[in-house]
Structures are given as structure tokens and as C-alpha cells.
């Protein structure tokens, strides 16, 4: 299983902070497509993604237990 984390406006849109789904073997891009189809989310294609707290490209393959976080444009500072 995989934990998916949403932040900022993505969390507001998803109306939840996290989600447990099985994403093993999928690429990040495939996961984004699936989530956009099944949940009321804004387009995720260009949203940054972190797996286990490190930024990853869209072709990264998801492993069992990976925590996947979608990182909207940051605005700290």
C-alpha cells in the first residue's frame, strides 16, 4: 500500500490530507492520471512530486510502502 499526501490548495480540493491506495509498479505520471480520474482534483501534471521526502521525476516507479506527496508551488519565506 501507499500513502498519498496532499498539501495547500490540493488538500482543500481533495478535501483530505491523505489517502491510502495501491500504487505499486505505477509511475508517478500514471498515479497522477488515476487520481485525477477518481477524485475531484485540479490538474496534477506539472505538480512536483516527492517520494519518501525527496523530489522525483514523473517517470519514477512507485514501490510498496512509498509515501508519495504532491507538492504545489511552494511559497515559504
Amino acid at each position: 500500500m501507499n500513502k498519498i499526501l496532499f498539501f495547500a490548495h490540493l488538500r482543500d480540493a481533495a478535501d483530505r490530507e491523505e489517502l491510502q491506495i495501491k500504487a505499486v509498479g505505477k509511475t508517478v505520471a500514471e498515479l497522477k492520471t488515476e487520481l485525477m480520474k477518481n477524485y475531484d482534483l485540479p490538474q496534477l501534471e506539472t505538480v512536483m512530486t516527492a517520494i519518501n521526502e525527496e523530489f522525483v521525476p514523473d517517470d519514477e516507479i512507485i514501490h510498496d510502502g512509498d509515501v508519495i506527496a504532491f507538492i504545489p508551488s511552494v511559497s515559504g519565506g
Binding site: 498539501f7 496534477l44 501534471e45 523530489f55 508551488s73 511552494v74 511559497s75 515559504g76
Partner: peptide, 23 residues
């Protein structure tokens, strides 16, 4: 650029997350 922190501005007439929300 790289630190996952977000700010939401609150005004008299509304609120919004700051950043490029259209991604």
C-alpha cells in the same frame, strides 16, 4: 524554490493559497 512550505493569505474579502495554483 525547494522547501515545502505554503502560505495562505487572508484578506477582508477572501483567502487564497499563494503560488502558481494553475501549476
Amino acid at each position: 524554490e525547494i522547501v515545502p512550505i505554503w502560505k495562505k493569505e487572508h484578506w477582508e474579502d477572501g483567502e487564497a493559497w499563494v503560488g502558481n495554483q494553475l501549476e
